[in-house]
């Protein structure tokens, strides 16, 4: 079976990627799985300068899901290019860097650096709910997404995917912003902003109070938003969800592929 796909200009041998933040830069998981089997790896959110991340507790379990507030802890793009990228390049898989920043200038500076690297694409993170400035602040409106994306587009020749936040009234607005600014694709969803209370301590469980909700609990929201965005834009969509087993993965792929054939467009 030919599983090759071209997602937003990134030719992958199969449509399976890993969502940013769930896989680090691949090193830890390489002890458990063969990275060569993946169509692509989307790295942990990477910023221009290193970020220490948020205070603990950073994660907590919820019903059918979990909250996280990592705060984009990452070693910075310079460390990535000198350490993780040469290592990742040893594998037969596409490398897509999730790029995050706190201001338009920072996104642009980072994009300039990324443009010089041996990577296959950039996922623009306009959707992290856990940092005060930037990210999600840009991602919630048509104008915000369009502005950052078009500035980045000017300096980035590589395939550009914009990662959307679900914390909006109408997901099609930021999606159209990305498309109109020249993005090659969109990925969705990032986590839903949530909060959990420790009743004994009478305070939120997470030190940052709020965090992003992921897991089986949010899957229907993700599916709904992919459906809505698919009708609103013409660029490809990278659907981010949990694949807990192969059977389910095949089923989703089959159903989404069917919808692609109808629309002459692929959803992954």
């Amino acid at each position: 079976m030919n599983t090759e796909v071209n997602l937003a200009g990134i030719k992958m041998k199969n449509p399976v990627t890993v969502a940013s933040g769930t896989f680090g830069y691949g090193r830890e998981f390489s002890e458990f799985i063969d990275l060569n089997k993946l169509g692509g790896i989307i790295t942990k959110g990477t910023s221009l300068k290193p970020r220490p991340g948020n205070k603990p507790p950073r994660v907590c379990e919820t019903t059918a899901g979990m909250l996280n507030s990592i705060g984009l802890q990452n070693p910075g793009v310079e460390y990535f290019m000198n350490n993780d990228l040469p290592w990742l390049r040893k594998f037969d898989t596409k490398v897509i860097v999730n790029a995050c920043g706190s201001s338009i200038e920072e996104y642009v500076e980072l994009a300039k650096v990324l443009n010089t690297l041996d990577i296959d694409g950039v996922e623009l993170n306009l959707s992290c709910p856990n940092v005060k400035a930037g990210c999600m602040a840009f991602g919630t409106s048509y104008e915000g997404v369009k502005e950052v994306t078009s500035q980045v587009r000017k300096v980035l020749d590589k395939p550009l995917i914009v990662k959307l936040t679900p914390n909006v009234t109408d997901i099609t607005e930021p999606a159209r912003g990305a498309e109109d600014a020249g993005a090659d694709g969109v990925s969705l969803i990032n986590t839903l902003l949530g909060m959990s209370i420790d009743v004994e301590k009478q305070r939120p469980v997470l030190a940052n109070n709020m965090g992003g909700l992921s897991g089986p609990a949010v899957k229907p929201v993700a599916v709904r938003m992919v459906y809505q965005v698919a009708q609103a834009v013409k660029i490809p969509i990278l659907g981010l969800r949990r694949n807990s087993n192969r059977k389910r993965c095949d089923r989703i792929y089959a159903s989404w592929s069917n919808s692609c054939i109808n629309r002459n467009r692929k959803l992954y």
Binding site: G53, P56, R58, V59, M66, I70, Q73
Partner: peptide
């Protein structure tokens, strides 16, 4: 002890300063 997501150093959930 700290709440962990993955337990293998990926999710960066169980942070200690």
């Amino acid at each position: 002890e700290e709440r962990m997501g993955c337990g293998i150093g990926v999710c960066l959930g169980c942070a200690v300063q």
